[in-house]
C-alpha cells in the first residue's frame, strides 16, 4: 500500500518536469496579454486569466488559474488593487517562488505608468463612497502614453528573467514603438477635442485626458453601486445643459439605468469595447483603441 503511494508520487514528480523552452507568461487581463505577445514574440507563451467579456472588477479565483500561475515565469497584472479580490490568493496558492511579491517574475504593470488620481485625489477614501480605488484610477490601459511605458517595462522585465534574449525583446519593443508612433499620428486626427460625454463608470478618463474630450457626468453615482433616482435626474439635467448626445458604456455595464437615460434624453447609448477581445474584430490593443476612437467619432454604435 505504502509502496504504491510512493510510486504514484514518483510518477507525479516525473510528469511535473519542465516541459519545453520559452517563457510562460500569465497575464490577468486580455490587454496585458496582447502587449506581452508583442514584446515577447515567439519566446513567450501567454495565458490570459480573465475572459474578455468579464468585468475585471469582479473576478473569482478558479483552480485552473492557480495551475496556470504555478507554471508562470512571469505574472503580469494591472495593479492599483484592480485584482485585489483574487490575485493574492492565486499567488500564494500557486506555490511558485518566481512570481512572489518582489521577485523578477512579479510584474505589476501599474509600476510603470502615470496614474490619474481620480478617487485618490479627493483625499478621503472609505467604502461609503462605493468600490473606489484609493490608489488611483486603474483603467490606464486606454492611455497610449502609458501603454508605451508598460511596453518598455515589460521588455525590461522579460530581459531580467531571460537575459539571454534581451536583444530580441528590445528589438520587439522598438518595433512596437514604431507601430505606436505611426498609430498616434493616425489617432491624432480623431477630432474629439472639446467633445462632451456622459459615462457609466470612471473608465474612460485616461482616453479623455489624452484625446482632449470631457466626461461631464457619470450615471453611476458611486463605483459599483447602482445609482439613485435623484442622481440619474441630476445627470440628465447636466446632459441637457451641456448638450451631451452620447453615453459611454462597456459591454458588461449596459444596464437598465443607461437605457433609461438614453430613452429620456434622446442621447445615444454607445457601447465601447473595454478590453481586447470584448467585441468581434478587436484582436489586439491597437485594434481596441482603433475601435473606440472610430465609434466615438462616427457614433455608429458598438456593433457586437
Amino acid at each position: 500500500m505504502k509502496r504504491r503511494v510512493l510510486l504514484w508520487m514518483i510518477l507525479f514528480l516525473l510528469l511535473s518536469a519542465p516541459a519545453s523552452a520559452g517563457l510562460n507568461v500569465v497575464a490577468t487581463l486580455p490587454w496585458i496579454g496582447s502587449i506581452a505577445r508583442e514584446i515577447g514574440g515567439d519566446r513567450v507563451r501567454v495565458r490570459v486569466l480573465v475572459r474578455p467579456t468579464q468585468d475585471a472588477h469582479y473576478v473569482e479565483a478558479r483552480p485552473s488559474m492557480i495551475l496556470a500561475a504555478r507554471r508562470a515565469d512571469l505574472l503580469m497584472y494591472n495593479g492599483l488593487d484592480l485584482e485585489a479580490g483574487y490575485l493574492p490568493v492565486l499567488v500564494e496558492s500557486s506555490r511558485n517562488p518566481r512570481i512572489q511579491p518582489g521577485m523578477p517574475g512579479d510584474v505589476d504593470c501599474s509600476r510603470f505608468v502615470e496614474v490619474l488620481q481620480g478617487d485618490a485625489a479627493t483625499g478621503r477614501a472609505d467604502r461609503s463612497m462605493g468600490d473606489i480605488h484609493p490608489l488611483g484610477n486603474p483603467h490606464y490601459h486606454l492611455s497610449p502614453k502609458n501603454i508605451a511605458r508598460v511596453a518598455r517595462g515589460m521588455a525590461d522585465s522579460l530581459s531580467a528573467v531571460d537575459p539571454g534574449n534581451r536583444d530580441l525583446y528590445m528589438a520587439n519593443l522598438a518595433a512596437f514603438e514604431r507601430k505606436l508612433s505611426q498609430k498616434l499620428k493616425q489617432w491624432s486626427g480623431a477630432g474629439l477635442e472639446g467633445g462632451r460625454f456622459v459615462a457609466y463608470h470612471r473608465f474612460f478618463e485616461y482616453l479623455a485626458a489624452e484625446f482632449g474630450f470631457h466626461i461631464v457626468g457619470y450615471i453611476e453615482e458611486k463605483p459599483g453601486i447602482p445609482p439613485s433616482a435623484a442622481h440619474i435626474q441630476e445627470v440628465m439635467e447636466r446632459m441637457k445643459e451641456d448638450g451631451v448626445t452620447k453615453i459611454l458604456t462597456t459591454v458588461y455595464q449596459v444596464g437598465r439605468e443607461g437605457r433609461y437615460v438614453s430613452e429620456r434624453t434622446g442621447a445615444e447609448l454607445v457601447v465601447l469595447p473595454h478590453d481586447v477581445g470584448s467585441m468581434k474584430g478587436v484582436d489586439d490593443w491597437f485594434g481596441l483603441i482603433d475601435r473606440i476612437l472610430e465609434v466615438l467619432k462616427g457614433g455608429t454604435g458598438g456593433g457586437r
Binding site: 495593479g79 505608468v113 502615470e114 496614474v115 488620481q117 481620480g118 490608489l135 479623455a208 485626458a209
Partner: peptide, 16 residues
C-alpha cells in the same frame, strides 16, 4: 474645460 484641466493636473507618477 477647467474641470478637465484639474483632472490632467492630477496626472502623476504612481504613489505606490
Amino acid at each position: 474645460a477647467l474641470e478637465s484641466g484639474a483632472q490632467m493636473k492630477a496626472y502623476r507618477v504612481n504613489p505606490k
